[in-house]
Design a protein around this nucleic acid. Sequence first.
RNA 1: GGAGUUAUAGCUCAGUUGGCUAGAGCGCUUCAUUGACAUUGAAGAGGUCACUGGUUCAAGUCCAGUUAACUCCACCA
Length: 758
Amino acid sequence: MDKAYNFKEAEENLYSKWEEAGYFTPQARFGKGDKDAYSIILPPPNASGKMHTGNVLMVAIEDLLIRWHRMKGDPTVWIPGTDHAGTETQITFEKELKKQGKSRFNYSREEFYSKIKEFVEGNKGEIVQQLRKMGASVDWDRYMFTLDPQVVKTVHETFKKMYDDGLVYRGDYMVNYCVKCGTTYSDVELKHEERQDPLYYVKYERVHKDHGEQYLSVATVRPEPIAEDTHLAVNPKDKKHAKLVGEKVLNPLTGVEMEIIGDEFVDPEFGTGIVKLTPAVDKNDYEVALKHKLPINEVLDLQGKMKGRYEGLSVNDARKKAVEELEQKGLIGKVDEKYMHSVALCKAGHKIEPMILPNWFVKVDAPKKSLKKPALDAVKKGDVKIFPKWQEIKYVRWMEEMRDWPISRQNVWGIRIPVWHRVDGHEVRLWTLFIDKNGQQHQGSIAQHYDNNFSLEEIKAGIQRVLVPFYEEHNQPQIYIGENVPVEGQWIRETDTFDTWFSSGQWPLVTLGYPDSEDFKKFYPTSVLETGWEIIRLWVSRMMMFGYYLTGEPPFKDVYLHGMVRALDGRKMSKSLGNVINPEEYVEQYGVDALRMGLIAGTANGKDFNFPKDRVIAYKHFSNKIWNMGRFLLMMREQWDKEIPRFEDLDKKSLNDEDKKILNGLNKQIEGVEGFLNKFRFADAGEFIYQFMWHEVADSYIEHVKVREDKDVALSVLTHVYMTSLKLLHPFMPFVTEAIYQQMPDHGESIMIEEWPA
RNA sequence: GGAGUUAUAGCUCAGUUGGCUAGAGCGCUUCAUUGACAUUGAAGAGGUCACUGGUUCAAGUCCAGUUAACUCCACCA
């Protein structure tokens, strides 16, 4: 053995040996049957980039659980995959395009899709390499990508089933729309940022001036759609303003009469206690408008240009103009220039405009077949357990509050919604945007395109977007749901793709070959879902809903949520702060085992924690320590010329107190590690072995062995204790333990397939 | 506005159902060292467990309140 442990050599060579020997494929060993099947689905890293520190922690924990169960002899499978991460990947890629002075509209959908695909293939390859490097004992034969054909097939079928069950519907709805990205975001995808904008107090002239003030003052940060407003609102419980309900004022820009309505959503304390209603661009206003059946005048188009009075202007230009006009009329009171308020931003950091657009929705709480109820009850009743327990609160709260889920995304990169709209009839009203053979963009109704002598084939060939206008209840357009276009009639396919989480919500099902594969029968529900707590709402909740909906069972029995790895300065890692830790640097410097074990030691109870650099270094030293313990053991065995009995054959009467003490310690190890792992207390388990091996075996017992007369007994005990400890340690630090194992006497094929000490 | 988490050695953090003479890693001090390992060994310094009150034979641990930090959710025109 070399004097020092060479982690690079071990880490380069061992993985492919394991893989080639087929150790990663599930099999029952030690007489165990399928009843102890153990399965984890790897939360697929985003194919938009490389793996980050959090991914490494995830791999470390899951590989620990997997290797542990595999050694116990359970048929064990860990299924790897990568996620297309629709929106995020498309944004990343569009940024790249922008650097080249191009945009998505320079390409047809197909071209654009294949360009992103190329980009993603590169990332996928890197992620796969990184997973190997981390020692992840995943079964590569079962690898999946979220856009693989069988995934798409299942997702389509689920959508169809849900449609038939009345659990998806198309609705006009106020969505968070980004005019720059050209897509909708769900609430949970947004960020909020504090911004400073002027708050204008606009004066509305009262029609009946017989009681007091001539004007009513209304505070607003967005005066530009005032001309399109039709109503004001006050809180009917507001003593000061209640009497205004039913009164009329004049629109400051158009002079049209506007009625004041009463609704309790108005906060009497804010501003003047009177609000203007612009239902088309404000969520509250929209809901109030629906409730009171007020007209909803569109204010913005999809490009973010104004409609109505300031047709075609940008929001900012329109705002200036509106302020100007109001000032000329003397209808602006005071202006609070330093008004701070929070603004919703999309993933790319653009300002979100609430807009009313047709969208597909998942009905999460339908009276007959609620999706969220079983998913919520399972956790409340303890059928699915969440660790650490306090995270359960977050889950329950979210589930209780969950509203219908918009699943349409205006991305190209994703699974296209399998809905066809019939266009041979009055549906020529459908709005489309397409690019013709010469690269020219055209937008408008299909009827308009026909008037301009474009055929349906030409439109379909260059289609960028289809929008279905609002229809009355009794006049719904004909749609067809399916992969292929129907033979009868003329149809155009929906251009929207599914929200990434709609497909990844079905990930445990598709990876196991739902509904009828052998894997599915054997491994569903999976044993544990291990992931970061920040995607409880985005992902965990959706998997639960789909799991129960499609199979009547939960997708997993336990959920373990690890904390977020923060930077060394205790803050979130972010590019702008420049504090992002690249795990590859640590692998290079300290080795994979040290990094994995260091991270595990940092995450005692699922709380967020600072990247534990000290621990990583400590575990690098530990690798070397145990390596040298092995070296010492071999040396001693060589120097001792008598035969050293196997521990099993040793006459136990020859043991002295020191021997008994260390053997007793070893038994406690076996019990302790198992106990900690069963309770998901990984850091405790790791620290426990660390303390034992270093301070009891090395510092104490080895020193004792040095002075022993009956070295055959002592060395027999030491060999047993050492080898057993290595097995306990293997799931934590797979490379160094295997490297040592290969040097030991009478070693088998691999420590990986050794039996777990019990 | 609502909710959650945290406050323990110089630093980063453990401390599970109350039994603690409060631990680990890193750092620090002194000494040691040729049968493995300087990525070593031995010894040691260092904490009124945020603050105030309460429950208890017993509180770092449970309860109430205060203070501070972080995070999430909802968002106000």
